[in-house]
Simulated assay, not measured.
Amino acid sequence: MGVGTDDLYPAERLAAAQRATAAAGLDALLLTPGSDLRYLTGYDAHEGERLTCLVLPAEGEPTLIVPVLERPGAEAAPGAGYRIVDHADGTDPWPLVRSALPGPAAAVGLADRMWAEQVLALRAALPDAAQRLASEVLRELRIRKSPAEVAALAEAGAAIDAVHRRMGEWLRPGRTEAEVAADIAAAIRTAGHVRVDFVIVAAGPNGASPHHLTGDRPIRAGEPVVVDIGGTMPSGYRSDCTRTYVAGGPAPAEFVDYYAVLHEAQRAAVAAVRPGVTAEALDAVARGIITAAGHGDAFLHRTGHGIGLDTHEDPYVVAGNPRPLEAGMAFSVEPGIYLAGRHGARIEDIVVCTTDGGQRLNTTPTELIAL
């Protein structure tokens, strides 16, 4: 791992989260496997039917409850400042949650993506506790990245850039989207990721679907191809980068014209990043340029999303979000233009807001790439 785990997962995070829990009027956070649990402990917990749960009281010692067979992995996690309690198969783990609380709980914050069966089991185990979302507490802690987190995101960005630089090895007319995607997935791992999170290869009319499910359609000469790829690094931090390519021939003139508009919009939005600019204002920079060129209806999604231990997290760069940008916020800038039945294009970089502007973490060219 290129970034030290002690810096990425500092012990003081637990104390900060406890203070924030108390300030929010919650008695505890109850966090099952996911990014919030990893953020506080460094533990990349297995998600399964056996209960893993961090009980983080507003005051008192935190407890990580794990299946006995997964205790070695929990003990190897880089976090500190909590005790580990295990449970064997066939035993009821929910009393362990109750006993890990220092007293009666009137309100608890649950991991936002906790399984419904666990939510209901906790309701039965703690019938007097109102259930709220843990993100009420943890969103503000996670939304601004530390220097170590920015370094981890930069490492992820460099790794996915290395994959995009190799696209000419794989993306050729006659090959199917799926064949190209398989090569890309292998390269994502070779570049240093421990997990491939997504590979979108969308050629020709499929490029007009932003979340196209890569299929067996052969790529044709001169067709635009949208390639959106990302993965998870050993640090837990994510990559996400989109480039649009043309292979084997000239692109349609219509496409070349609107790609120039898209390129201008993406560059302008990246240049507009600085503290104090609101998320909705940043969205409006890209959207305004695309709309003025007559393609506003073809920009189907928000301009960007935050990134960190999740590929999509706060802040969201979208109309209706008045949140001002702050130094340390990391997010995508990814406008797109999609013409149904014909083709589409998207350009995506991860950008970190600095004290006086923005820093691109993806550095490959954003011009239309001919292979």
Rank of each mutant, 00 (worst) to 15 (best):
E179K: 07
P218C: 03
A203S: 15
R175G: 02
S209T: 15
V196R: 12
T176D: 09
D183M: 12
A186L: 13
R175D: 06
R165I: 01
V225D: 06
R217V: 14
R217I: 10
A221D: 04
P210T: 07
R220Q: 14
P173L: 04
H212Y: 15
G204T: 06
I200M: 13
E179N: 05
S209C: 08
R175F: 08
P224G: 05
V199L: 09
R189G: 12
M167C: 07
A203D: 00
G222H: 02
D216K: 08
I200Q: 05
D228I: 00
E223G: 00
E177G: 06
P205L: 01
R165C: 11
V194Y: 00
A187M: 05
A178C: 07
V201K: 02
D183F: 10
E169G: 11
E223N: 02
D183K: 12
G231V: 13
N206C: 06
G174H: 08
P173I: 04
H164N: 12
S209L: 14
I219H: 02
N206Y: 01
G222P: 01
V201Y: 01
P210N: 08
E169A: 14
G231L: 07
I219S: 00
V226T: 08
L213M: 13
F198Q: 09
V180W: 04
R195V: 14
I219C: 04
R195N: 12
A221K: 01
G207E: 00
H164A: 03
G192P: 10
G192W: 01
L213E: 15
S209K: 11
E177N: 09
A202Q: 04
R189D: 12
G215W: 05
A187F: 00
I184Q: 06
T176R: 11
R220T: 10
G174L: 09
P210D: 04
R166H: 12
T190G: 14
G204D: 01
L213G: 05
A185S: 15
G174F: 03
A182T: 14
G204S: 03
V225R: 00
A187P: 01
G215Y: 00
R166P: 04
R217L: 13
R175P: 05
P205N: 01
V201I: 12
G192R: 04
V201D: 09
A203T: 01
H212T: 00
V180M: 07
N206W: 02
I219L: 10
R189L: 15
R217T: 15
H164V: 04
D183P: 00
V225K: 03
H193V: 09
P224L: 02
A178V: 10
L171N: 06
A203N: 01
G215N: 15
E177P: 08
R189I: 15
A203H: 05
V225P: 00
P173K: 07
